[in-house]
Every structure is written in structure tokens, then in C-alpha cells.
Design a protein around this nucleic acid. Sequence first.
DNA 1: CGAATCTGACAGGACGGGCTGTCAACCTGG
DNA 2: CCAGGTTGACAGCCCGTCCTGTCAGATTCG
Lengths: 205, 205
Amino acid sequence: MSVSARTYRGVSAEERKAERREKLLAAGLEVLGTLGWERTTMTAVCAEARLTERYFYESFSGREELLVAVADQVAVEARAAVLAALRAAPAQPRAAAREAIAAFVGLFEADPRKGRVAILESAAAPPMRRRRQELLREFTRLIVDEGHALFGAAALPPPWDEINALLFAGGLAELVAAWLTGEIDATTEQIIDAAADQFAATAHR
Amino acid sequence: MSVSARTYRGVSAEERKAERREKLLAAGLEVLGTLGWERTTMTAVCAEARLTERYFYESFSGREELLVAVADQVAVEARAAVLAALRAAPAQPRAAAREAIAAFVGLFEADPRKGRVAILESAAAPPMRRRRQELLREFTRLIVDEGHALFGAAALPPPWDEINALLFAGGLAELVAAWLTGEIDATTEQIIDAAADQFAATAHR
DNA sequence: CGAATCTGACAGGACGGGCTGTCAACCTGG
DNA sequence: CCAGGTTGACAGCCCGTCCTGTCAGATTCG
């Protein structure tokens, strides 16, 4: 391991390490988002990143850790997009929900790899599934909170709020999955409208 | 290969082969439903079935084929349970939908392994995912058709019927998944009620 | 009984991915 | 410049799974 940690090609040891980590994350997104879980081996990721295995272990303990990190990165992005949309959204519940959903769907339309990672592949392997559950739960909470903020006293009480939030989140995930894989031929607008309707129909009494 | 095909221990060659196939399917359900996709190797399935690998290839070309067959078997069962419930159900849309959903959920409550296979594991590996898509599509169609039968002219027109059916099927799958894994603490009744409400709220205009 | 078939157990090769070590070439700082 | 950190390339081991082959013992039927 590095003991003196000097600069190389003008960048410090820390920066170089961070750069390599970034390259690995980008490569992970590329491979996982195009070839899928099965074919996302350390060998493939390292080849994509043009780094050797040694540098892989510098930042990650193994393949699982990298892939969880990739999925997390996408989840953080999705969360940020939704929150930003909500902050900028009008006060009407229906319109606000629509904006948030549009932001969520738009992220995956802009980069299908992220959609595949967040929705398709995150359901594949056990370690990512655990993560996916946590994320879904987080989104569920976000939905519940927004529901309460938007609908006030008309919002659903526990445990119905959480149950319906799961119902909504799962449905949206499945719908976006079908849309991403081209199984269903619907426009982005239709996806968003249907999800917004669904939310409006079930988020309050 | 067998050329003469004589009886052994009182059973014909065909019956023996069929028995072995059944044992493999049962072992596949057990291993896939308890240990999960990753750990469901041919070695593990053969050990569980107390058969050697040779007999594995007698009935299946490889591990994927067996696991798809296992998932199919569960899917057929689920489909039959839902259809039977619908045939025996009252004419009121709300009650009929509730019966069908209860039958679906009840199957997985009775045997959680089937739930794990149908909902958790079927999303894991690519070959099973393709199957899952087809099955979901089949259920979607079933839901669409039932929606039209139950609600008549009030049912949703394309493409909204399919979009909403996917939204519903995906949501129910996610909800049942959370319920199976104990992530959410809700009673069976609550799951069924919420799903029935959701269906009633979105299956017609 | 005896020949043919069936069965179960196991050995072992082929293959691929995870993981470590070596080595030459390169860059930096004294 | 040169001692020592840094990098990339690659060989090679370990391990688990897939898959095939062999063989002794059990069972059937002429």
C-alpha cells in the first residue's frame, strides 16, 4: 500500500484514488446497465474502466459492493430529481404529484442504463435486493410524507398510507420496467398521466 | 440411453422418468424457494432430490430450464386459483375482485416458497425475468378482461386498461413481496382489502 | 441362473471468475 | 540523476459449477 502518497501526473494520491473509484463506478453503470447482473463480472468492469483488478480492491471489497454503490448512486440521483421537482412544483396536489413523477420517469428516459439498474437489475441479486427494499421504503416514506403534506387531513392513516405507497411504488416500477424494455407501447406522457391518476386516486380518502 | 425400457421395482420406464422429473421439480421449488437463485445450483438440486446429475439431464437441458419450469408450475397454479375464485365469485365487481385477490394471496400464504419463486426470484435471473414478463402480461390480460366483464362500458379503453393493469399487477407483486419478507407488518386481510380498493379505484372510470 | 438393464455413487476434466504476485516501464522529488 | 513510489499488463493459483465417464451392485426377464 502507499506509504508516502506523493503526486503523480500532477494529481495527489487521494485524487487519483478518487478518480479510479469514479471510473469504476462509471464502468459499473455501463456494464450493469447494458449487459445485466449476470455478465457484470469484475473482469468485465475492470476492462471497461481500463483498470486492473488491483485497483478494484483499492476501492471495493468485491463485485457486490461496487454494484450496490452503483445502484445507490442512481437512487440518490432519482431522489434528488424528485425532491427538486417537488420544491419547484405548484401547490395543487395533482400537479405537484405529476411533476414529481415526471422528474422520476424523465431521469430514466434520459439514461436508460440508470433505469435498468434502478428498476430491473436492482431486483436481481440478493444484496441489491436488500438495497432496493430500503430504497423503495425510503420512497414509500417520501410518498407518504408528500401525501400528508399535499392532502393534509384527507391523507390516509397508518397502516394504509404505507400499504398504498408500496402499491403505488411497485406499480410505477413495474410500469416503467415494461416501458423501458419496450414491452408496452405507451408514450412518456401516458405513463406519467396514469401514475399521477393512480396516486391521486389512492393517496387520500 | 434406454433402448428396451423395461419395468423396474414395479414401475415402467416412462413412469420412473416422470417420477424423477417430479422429484427434480419439487427439489427445485424447495431450493429456489428457500435458498434463492444464487444458491440454486444443479448440485444442490440433485442433492435435494437425491438423484445424480445424469438424471438431471434426462429431463432438463440445464439449470435454467428446470427453474423456468418450476416458476411456470407456480404460475399455472396461481392462474388456476384466481380463475376458480372468479368462477365461484358473486357478480358484484368489488366482491369478485376481492375473492380473486384473496385466492392469489392465499396461495402464497399457504406456501411461502411459491411466493418467493413467483414474486421474488422470478425477477432475479434474465431467463426467469422473460418468463415473469410473459406471466405478468398474461395476468394483465386477465385483469383487463375481468375489468371489462365486471365494469362493462365503464371499463377503461386501451391503452389505459393495459397501463393500469400493469400498475396494479406490479403494485400487488411489490406489496406481497414486502409482506412475504416481513418488511411490512400488515394482516392478510389488509393486503387484500388494499389491493381490492386499488383495483376498484382504477379499473374503471 | 445368466445376460441385459437400471441405478447410485463418485472421480475428474473443462471452464470461468475471484484473487494475488511478479515485473518492466514510468514518474516524482530529493 | 537515481531511489523509490506508481502504474499497467499478465501469469497463475484457488475454487465452485457444469458436465461426462466409469463401475459395482441391484433388478428384471428369458
